[in-house]
Amino acid sequence: MARTHVTTVVNGDETEFLTEDSTSLLNALRDEVGLTGAKEGCGTGDCGACSVMVDDKVTCACLVFAPEVDGSTILTVEGLADSGELHPLQQCFLEGAALQCGICTPGFLISAKALLDRNPDPTETEIRYALAGNLCRCTGYDKIIRAVQEAAREMRGQ
């Protein structure tokens, strides 16, 4: 069966892989590229656990066919830290106990980064709506919202 050759930049590195046309970006990242940070919670775009950035836009990787990202730039949770130095969101999630089981955490970090990239000073309500596409069943969201608020403060230098 002929497979499609895809060329992308993943977390700053030029990355090539072969894929079936019907394979999701999520399965290609997990099975072909070996990055398992993005998770499948539903496969229907309802839970956000597979959130990645495709050309700076938050995307459910389960809803995109892998060949569609040819030529795109992708950021996954594995690319958030810079040479081992954690992103302020990662640090604030750790310090604020904003995770319990941790399965939704990669998706929340990506969605929160996308929010803070476009709005460095969001209100609580703006954070809650920006993260409404990411489901967490453990925390009740309280500590996640606070961690994003804290990271935003730090990133603004306050």
Binding site: L35, T36, G37, A38, T76, V77, E78, L80, A81, L86, Q90, F93, L94, L99, G102, T105, P106, L109
Partner: peptide, 8 residues
């Protein structure tokens, strides 16, 4: 925690 915020 570290493994869970870095995708490891």
């Amino acid at each position: 925690g570290l493994e869970k915020v870095t995708g490891k």
